[in-house]
Design a protein around this nucleic acid. Structure first.
Length: 497
DNA sequence: GTAGGGTTAG
């Protein structure tokens, strides 16, 4: 049974006899033939279905052309037409483009509604323009438009992304309390729970997320998305055992998994070093008729690279490219990672050009992966050169600096690394761990000890094995007293942290 | 309109 909402399949086809023919032409891209069957016959409703299908296929230019033709034939777009277009521009182009549609919409005398603003807020949240998203909410209120449950859902999501779980929780509380019968099986309310569970996971409250999942389970059968969110959250928090349990529950009595579930599960297997199960799942996915998408290829490739299975990773990369997967920046960055790991810097630098030729802009990941690769291979000068280039492009990145620090240390330039360290404004526990460890290797234990204490004072930690390296080093090289002092300071820092 | 992929220390 289907109550409310709209669908573009059979039910519409019965009401509009030539719709299926129309849509077929739209989908195969023969727009001239669409024109041929006379758009004149279209009502605004049909125009909207047409615009929606083109938008879904990312054919925004064609969607606009259809609207223009519609106007010429006397079919005027309405608020739904513009909302569809605004949503698509938010997804595939950018927020500024969406705002220009909003402007044209107002010029055409059509007032935006709550759905218009929800699309803009969701678009801003997706593109991490979080303040803008919150401002849009306030602006909507000032315009006298009443927010609906989706507006609150999006606001919650935005607050979680901003790292404000307390404020997000307040909204969640309000939404739940505003419903007389808080059964989360109602679609937008199910989304509220999903956003809450996801937000809790992403903000480090996996236990609370798990608790909420268990508590609301009795009120509704968890949908696939809920499972996906929770499994992913548990995996990322290192709670592999609990994740395993949920996967089992899903396999035994849950909904049929989709490509996203499989990708999360693949990541789970590779993360928990169950490579054989991972590879087995890969063939299972294929046998079920799923084809690998860019997400799956990147997950598998990076797992293979990390575990040193370069040959298999290469085969995977080739398959991805042969299968016509449209490469986005993440795929390119994964390829960059592969070329760097196999020390094929010719291909790596060539890839930089390719990315730009493909109309994409390298980001901080691209540059950092290259710098890391150059450092590990001992090409410190080239790494520094690329670091300077990256800086001049406006990417300042702690991860890249950490790579340089480590690279300098490992290739006998520990004093240069210390100089760089002194000049750094921001340092994290990786910076300290790397330096302290390398100082130990160079048997400069007193210096390492001093640095480690600075790290503790800054509220950061270094790995246990690094702590032990410093303590053992001090003891074994005759600094027993210093070792004792350091030990008590470490204990104090542990208590304070 | 809410879920999945890419970088750094050991």
């Amino acid at each position: 049974m289907h109550l409310g909402g709209h669908r573009t399949d059979g039910s519409s086809r019965k009401r509009f006899p030539f719709l299926s023919r129309l849509l077929r032409f739209v989908f195969i891209g023969k727009l001239s033939q669409v024109m041929y069957i006379r758009v004149k016959k279209l009502s605004t409703r049909l125009l909207n279905i047409c615009v929606a299908s083109l938008c879904k296929a990312k054919q925004l230019g064609k969607a606009e052309a259809v609207i223009v033709d519609g106007v010429r034939l006397g079919i005027l777009p309405d608020v739904v037409t513009y909302n569809t277009l605004i949503d698509a521009y938010c997804r595939f182009v950018g927020l500024d483009a969406a705002y220009s549609i909003l402007y044209r919409m107002k010029e055409a005398g059509i007032s935006p509604d709550v759905i218009t603003y929800n699309s803009l807020m969701a678009g801003a949240t997706r593109k991490r323009l979080l303040k803008q998203s919150l401002d849009l909410f306030d602006y909507m209120l000032r315009e006298g438009i009443c927010p609906d449950i989706w507006s609150f859902n999006i606001r919650m999501h935005c607050l979680f992304k901003l790292g404000k779980p307390d404020e997000a929780y307040k909204i969640f509380h309000d939404i739940i309390n505003s419903h007389l019968s808080p059964l989360p099986s109602h679609p937008p309310l199910a989304a509220t729970f999903n956003i809450m569970i996801n937000g809790l996971c992403k903000n480090g409250y996996v236990d609370n997320a798990f608790g909420l999942f268990r508590n609301v389970c009795h009120a509704f059968v968890p949908r696939l998305m809920t499972y996906n969110i929770l499994i992913d959250g548990l995996c990322k928090a290192g709670r592999l055992h609990t994740a395993r349990g949920i996967i089992k529950e899903l396999q035994e009595s849950g909904p049929e998994p989709n490509a996203i579930t499989y990708n999360i599960m693949l990541k789970f297997y590779f993360r928990s070093k169950q490579y054989d199960q991972g590879l087995q799942l890969m063939s299972e996915i294929r046998s079920k008729g799923f084809t690998f998408d860019g997400f799956a290829y990147c997950t598998v490739m990076s797992a293979l690279i990390k575990t040193g299975r370069i040959k298999e990773a290469n085969a995977c990369a080739e398959q991805m490219m042969n299968n016509g997967i449209e490469l986005d920046l993440v795929s390119y960055n994964t390829l960059m990672y592969l070329y760097c790991k196999e020390c094929n810097f010719g291909a790596a630098f060539k890839l930089l050009d390719e990315i730009q030729k493909g109309g994409l802009e390298c980001d901080q990941y691209t540059h950092t992966i290259l710098i890391s690769g150059l450092c590990k291979a001992g090409h410190i000068v080239e790494a520094q050169q690329h670091f300077n280039k990256m800086n001049s492009l406006g990417f300042s990145n702690l991860a890249a600096l950490n790579c340089l620090i480590d690279g300098l240390c490992k290739h006998g330039r520990i004093d240069q690394a210390m100089e760089l360290f002194e000049a750094m404004e921001i340092k994290d526990s990786i910076t300290y761990t790397s330096l302290v460890h390398n100082l130990c290797k160079a048997r400069r234990f007193l210096c390492a000890s001093k640095l480690m204490l600075t790290c503790f004072r800054g509220g950061m930690r270094v790995l246990r094995c690094t702590q032990r390296a410093v303590l053992d080093g001090l003891r074994n090289s005759g600094f027993r007293n210093e070792a004792r002092k350091l030990q008590s300071k470490i204990q104090l820092a542990r208590m304070l942290n």
